[in-house]
Design a protein around this nucleic acid. Structure first.
Length: 275
DNA sequence: CTTGCGACCTGTTGGC
DNA sequence: TGCCAACAGGTCGCAA
């Protein structure tokens, strides 16, 4: 799925493109991943305006003028795409929002893991974010070294990579950027958190925002089928150091990058730099 | 509490 | 060419 940089890219583009636009009609073509159900969903949002687009962890938040927010998780293959009035939905286009300017906002999801849920905007913090157990935003002001390391130290018996992906000590990291941040910090993905040195922790704390910011700058990673709001591939894949580079030389030491299974996911790392 | 694995879906790729 | 297993950016729920 889109991880934090991809969701943030979509958020920025969507915010620019659809702020102030009215949702004049909602067409639900596949409603199993909507909450509430399609009839109620369409009823609540029809006629409202898109006020702003936010993001928390990997959730995209479409804030409406009527006090509701469409909370979207894109999971693996979900996409939001802006289209002109002549565009036709395909078999994976599950929701079409017809906008006041004649354009259409498509929610598209090949694997159907993604969801759209309505929440009162004022309830987001308590009923959505807290329930998901999200930790601090790595690019936000609440991402402090003290809090981050305290959270890690409480979970010392876990392996660092799966812990980074849990969203609890830090929000928004997935498989690609966990691998990238650990390479940057020269930490082995299997290393137990309790055995990390102070230098390791400091390095990891710095690497995470650096890796994410670089990816946002390149409009995300299109390793598989990710597309941004305008239907264009991201360009960050050219800048990846380990993800998808198994067998290729480490960009620091030329050793071949290896790929292993870790907690039923793939993990890529340099066996020499990341002992 | 932890880890591990199947489930949810569809499409693509690589091996034989 | 065909078939089939493995795999894919994410979580969730359940068993051990």
């Amino acid at each position: 799925m889109p991880e934090l940089p991809e969701v943030e890219t979509i958020r920025r583009q969507m915010q620019t493109a659809v702020t102030g636009k009215k949702i004049v009609r909602v067409e639900v073509r596949f409603g199993k991943r909507l909450r509430p159900g399609k009839k109620e969903f369409a009823k609540i949002i029809t006629g409202s305006e898109l006020m702003s687009v936010g993001r928390r962890a990997k959730l995209l938040l479409l804030n409406l003028s009527n006090g509701w927010t469409i909370v979207t998780h894109l999971k693996m293959t979900g996409k939001y795409l802006i289209k002109n009035n002549s565009a036709k939905p395909d078999k994976h286009t599950h929701v079409v929002f017809h906008l006041g300017d004649g354009r259409q906002l498509f929610f598209h999801d090949i694997r159907k893991f993604g969801y759209l849920r309505l929440s009162r905007t004022s309830d987001l913090e308590e009923k959505v974010f807290a329930r998901e157990g999200y930790g601090p935003e790595p690019l936000g002001p609440s991402f402090s070294y003290k809090i981050f390391t305290a959270c890690l130290k409480k979970r010392g018996k876990k392996k660092i990579k799966p812990l980074l992906m849990e969203q609890t000590c830090i929000a928004g990291i997935g498989n690609i950027y966990a691998d990238e941040a650990l390479w940057q910090a020269k930490i082995n993905p299997k290393q137990l958190v309790g055995t990390l040195s102070a230098a390791n922790l400091k390095s990891l704390y710095r690497s995470i925002p650096a890796v994410l910011k670089l990816a946002i700058k390149h409009r995300g990673t299109s390793a598989d089928n990710y597309l941004d709001f305008h239907g264009e591939a991201g360009e960050n894949q050219a800048f990846l150091k380990v993800y998808g580079r198994d067998g290729e030389p480490c960009r620091r030491c030329k050793t071949a990058i290896v790929k292993i299974k870790l907690g039923s996911r793939s993990a890529h790392f340099c066996p020499k730099c990341q002992k």
